[in-house]
Design a protein around this nucleic acid. Structure first.
Lengths: 239, 239
DNA sequence: TCGTGATTACTTGTATACAAATATTTTGTT
DNA sequence: AACAAAATATTTGTATACAAGTAATCACGA
């Protein structure tokens, strides 16, 4: 599925193995979005179409489709003569996206809540396990990876597909802010808070109370925004 | 020459006048989305890249970007060897989108409500005027056009940009359903209902009560969904 | 007449050459 | 040395030829 964190073995081979154009697009899109979100390409990075096409073993044409969709998602900005740059997340946009996500997460509990079957419960159990592992050995990459994977798990708590699509777009618009703002000194604290969130939500899911899970998620989004703004202020403050 | 019956004077000239690629994309995207929404291209219509590029006076490359974004929006579906087809709106998707829009419209009143200045009040006044004109002479095209324009006016009631973007995507995913389902016999009734909605919302906006406007909108979305499902049932019923 | 296989036509997907826009470097002049 | 203008390099944008996939047609035989 997602994987492709550091390993990401030979994308070119995966692309060649894919039979349809849609599959190839999906691979390129996922890989690039993941690299942007995991800060393999930090904000401001210039992505050369020619270089990327070379790495993927294809021409610029099919690659450009992936880049154009990512641009529509707000993750890239292409300009003729300048280049394709990874966008930055500014504080204003961050606050607006977070406010919207807070409200929409509540909808997860109200609109078409999924029934918690064995598979879903098992998924959240692995999340809990990964959180515990991370707490023992806090690490930036693993933290970011768990953040992304837990989001996708949470998504499965609703059967409303448009809600899923919209939530995903909003999530990826800002999720890299954590990696960009967390200094190594704060990592442990953030991991601890995130673990508490995962534990609480997993407990709620275990007893089938999706609405409770949604409210917990909302509360943590709210507090997360507050911490992010304070981090941002601390970073922007003069030395 | 071109079959663009609804105003839309020579797109090719507009494209040539545009100075940047982004402007050209915006023109093509808007024109195509509008044609799909106004049923110039009804669901199932096959859009030939070559023909469209010819009409727009450009090559397939820049046109394809617009088509690809519209495909990501869910309005088109492209398949190699088959063609690019306008998607249909099925009842399931319709219900999910409407449920989500109902909830999100409430957010319009809570998240960053815009302050109603003179310009905004004037805009809603023109909407009221157009509604009154439409009531006198109900017409399918004018109804659909007002539906789209009123949506954009309503959008301006919030300053939360992500909320605007998401709402717009959702709106265009289903708005053509009205034109596809309304038989000429029901047009007058729908126009009447729509006028009542516009009048009520305009009154609320006039006194600066955006939250009230949002609740009215939500109520009409809810009732609209009910009517749409009943229309759909009536249409699908055997003769 | 029916069925079946090959052929043909038509569609989007991909590769590539070139155009246009921007940034950088060089070069010439004062 | 400083400045300006031109040449150059680098990037995305566009046009176009061809490949790959699909559907319809035709030919041919039983």
């Amino acid at each position: 599925m997602s994987m492709a964190d550091t390993g990401e073995p030979d994308i070119a081979a995966q692309l060649e193995a894919a039979s349809t154009a849609q599959e190839r697009f999906q691979i390129m899109y996922s890989v690039l979005r993941d690299r942007i979100s995991m800060l393999v390409y930090p904000p401001g990075t210039q992505l050369s179409e020619e270089v990327l096409a070379g790495e993927f073993g294809i021409s610029r044409s099919p690659l450009r489709k992936a880049l154009q969709i990512l641009e529509a998602d707000g993750l890239l900005l292409s300009q003729q003569g300048i280049g394709t740059l990874v966008t930055d997340v500014d504080l204003n946009e961050l606050a607006q996206v977070y406010q919207l996500r807070m409200e929409m997460n509540e909808l997860t509990g109200r609109l078409s809540p999924a029934d918690v079957d064995f598979r879903l419960a098992a998924l959240f159990d692995t999340m809990r396990q990964r959180a515990e592992d991370l707490r023992v050995a806090p690490e930036r990459q693993a933290f970011a990876r768990l953040n992304i994977d837990f989001f996708h798990a949470f998504q499965q708590l609703t059967d409303n597909q448009p809600l899923r699509d919209v939530s995903e777009k909003l999530f990826y618009q800002t999720c890299r802010i954590w990696l960009t703002l967390i200094p190594s000194t704060n990592l442990s604290r953030e991991v601890e808070i995130f673990c508490q969130e995962i534990f609480a939500i997993t407990d709620a899911v275990a007893i089938g109370d999706i609405e409770a899970a949604a409210h917990i998620r909302r509360a943590h989004l709210s507090m997360g925004l507050k911490r992010l703004t304070s981090m941002k202020d601390a970073k922007d403050a003069p030395v």
